[in-house]
């Protein structure tokens, strides 16, 4: 059962935080960091494990957010049910975009550009379509009852997003130790060689994209309930696509904990920047860019890779005997 203890300990430690502090600033910070960790985990499954770099994960985030909000406000659907349908809708959008791009044989930067284009199309449609509230956006009516996914305090929101992150960690860990995971990584490394070994690359990528989109859509639905407001710029805007890929790349691409580590680091840096410089808009993005360049230049395997290297540095004999203790033996 190697690999499960770190997930259990991390989640347990994070779950205890609201018992020690009721500061809204702290909880709000952690909720946003965990939200990015969740969305980033979605991106990581497709991009980190599958090697398909999407620049348009906002397409799934926004679909999750809008479906959750619109079903409640226009069709009177219960918020929890709407949230679940939002996840399914996000998965469907992922499968559709995946089918179109993979069937056309799009890879690498072409795939990235097409996902970006799909997300932009959705953003523009959402900013004019009546059903989304067009430019005004969709406001969810304030109704602080748990039955409708709204709470008096931040703590329950915090535990819910932590629960979602925990599910995503377990899911990715399970995939990592499965045939599907092995095939996904094989497709990332070399599609032709994988096909020669019986791997249906198209199906594997499509499966990864669908699950990836579902995870990211869950983040969108949560966002809608947390802020009770969605508009086209928030839901389908490039900001979330950027954060979705920033967190796993900085944390460690293709690792279970990468997105969580990266999200905590990125959000901490963002907050520190605000403390130092005041609220100059866009300055946190400059910092993100700088960190991204540094990570890609000096730690291409992210913080997780850096930790593994340091561990190897201090225990050279152990590392030489088993260079990859976490991989392949699950």
């Amino acid at each position: 059962m190697k690999g499960w203890a770190p997930i259990g300990l991390t989640v347990a430690a994070l779950a205890a935080v609201p018992l020690f502090t009721s500061s809204n600033v702290v909880l709000n910070f952690l909720v946003m960091a965990l939200l990015i960790a969740l969305v980033g985990q979605g991106w990581n499954l497709l991009g980190g494990y599958g090697g398909q770099y999407s620049f348009g994960h906002s397409a799934f985030f926004g679909t999750g957010a809008y479906v959750t909000a619109i079903l409640q406000m226009r069709y009177g659907v219960n918020a929890w049910v709407g949230f679940c349908i939002g996840i399914a809708a996000g998965a469907l959008v992922g499968a559709a975009i995946g089918a179109l791009s993979f069937r056309s044989g799009l890879k690498g930067s072409y795939f990235a550009l097409v996902t970006l284009a799909f997300a932009e199309v959705l953003r523009i449609v959402a900013s004019v379509a009546p059903v989304t509230g067009a430019g005004v956006g969709t406001l969810i009516k304030l109704d602080l009852r748990p039955e409708v996914f709204q709470f008096q305090s931040r703590a329950p929101f915090y535990w819910i997003i932590l629960g979602l992150v925990a599910v995503s960690l377990i899911l990715v860990r399970l995939i990592e130790g499965s045939r599907f995971g092995a095939y996904l990584v094989a497709v990332r490394e070399n599609e032709d060689a994988a096909a020669a070994l019986g791997v249906d690359a198209m199906r594997v990528k499509l499966g990864a994209m669908t699950i990836s989109a579902a995870i990211t859509a869950a983040g969108g639905g949560f966002y809608a309930q947390y802020f009770l407001f969605v508009d086209a710029g928030i839901a389908y805007g490039p900001w979330i696509s950027v954060e979705a890929l920033l967190a796993p790349i900085i944390g460690g691409i293709g690792t279970v904990f990468g997105p969580l580590l990266g999200a905590l680091v990125v959000k901490t840096l963002g907050e520190l920047t605000k403390l130092v410089t005041g609220d100059a808009p866009g300055l946190d993005l400059v910092i993100y860019g700088g960190v991204l360049v540094l990570v890609i230049a000096f730690a291409p395997r992210g913080i997780a890779g850096l930790i593994a290297d340091l561990r190897g540095f201090f225990k050279p004999s152990l590392a030489a005997a088993k260079p990859n203790p976490d991989r392949g033996h699950g």
Binding site: A186, R188, A196, L197, G198, D200, A201, N324
Partner: peptide, 29 residues
């Protein structure tokens, strides 16, 4: 991939290992 499932395997003249994986993981695919 369907030919592979019917029992036809090939090697590549220009070797195509899954570079990021160990030997064990490569063969396990």
């Amino acid at each position: 991939h369907r030919l592979a499932r019917r029992g036809i395997a090939r090697t590549f003249q220009i070797v195509q290992p899954f570079i990021g994986l160990t030997v064990h993981e490569n063969i396990a695919v």
